[in-house]
Amino acid sequence: MVWRFIAKRVVIALLQLIGISLVVFFLIRGLDADPVARIVGLNATAEAVKQATESLGLHEAKLQQLANYLGIFSSSGKDGIMQGTLGESWVTGSSILEEVARFLPITLELITYSLIIAFLMAMPLGMSSGTRPGGFADRFTFVWGLFAGSQPEFWWGLMFVFVFFFLFQQAGWPSAPAPLGRLNPFLTAPESITGFILIDAVLRGRFDVWLDAAHHLMLPVFTLVFVISGPIVKMVRQNMLRVLRSDYILYARSAGLSRNKVARYALRAALAPAMTLTAIIYGFLLGGAVPVELIYSLGGIGEYSIRSILNLDFPAIQGTVLIIAMVSLVIYLVIDILHAFLDPRIAF
């Protein structure tokens, strides 16, 4: 049963990826943007424009361009998606797959830590407020959930920098580092293994790097946790309230189950929806962490995508959207499968 469910979900995800790559392809070409003018400048000669157009492959018919992109019936002789490559950037000329592989882990590291911390904080907070409605924890969680649910994380990030870097430094206290990247410029990053700098540092035995990187990640992670813990807490609280008033909890109590056992019954039912929400936020943050990346100059996939978009670097835009969509679909899939194991009603 579960296997059929997984297989079905994988097929749907693949179809969605195909749909996304097609939509992006035609969307960016359908909008009113002229990448050639961006590259050669507005005063370029007709000859230069023609040359640039041809070198970018934009002189071909749209369908042929698509064929080149996909790598089926290609007229350029270059590989496409079917051959496992996303092409080259029009701006830097290097392979998009390599560039994405460099930038993506930075974002993944940031949002993974943030979500884990947010989830671990939200579960006990939401549960305790759900079990004692009206108490202090409950009121705090309620207002918090409402407030932090949608807040300008870029502004809060700046405020944290102002307080924890500028003011703390002024006061002579130990402060957060300047928001200028992942590491102190005097340290060399360890050679990448996973791309997660904290993990690489441990694997390479570079504990100086580990400490510095953790120091640098502190504020960005705090900023994201600050914003995303809101909806998760709210969700856990609502679920808990709902579950505790459910018939099966009342029945479990009337059957004389111990307090512990009843709590486990409740947790099990409240956990699954919170997990789904976490996955959705993960998918959202993959592309939505751009402002935070910018503030702390982390150089993640978000920064890469905005650079590509503003430069009208079509292959890079296509590549990043595709990769981001793929990662989030994988995350949804994993969570759905976990959910199906937790809640047998999902996979029938």
Binding site: I28, L31, D32, A33, F284, V290, S305, I309, L310, V321
Partner: peptide
């Protein structure tokens, strides 16, 4: 199905593309 597809897009990046490329 189209609506599903639209939802699978990264919101922030899609908005950036739409705005930046159309002016």
């Amino acid at each position: 199905r189209t609506s599903d597809l639209l939802q699978a897009f990264p919101v922030f990046i899609t908005a950036m593309i739409l705005v930046a490329l159309s002016g």
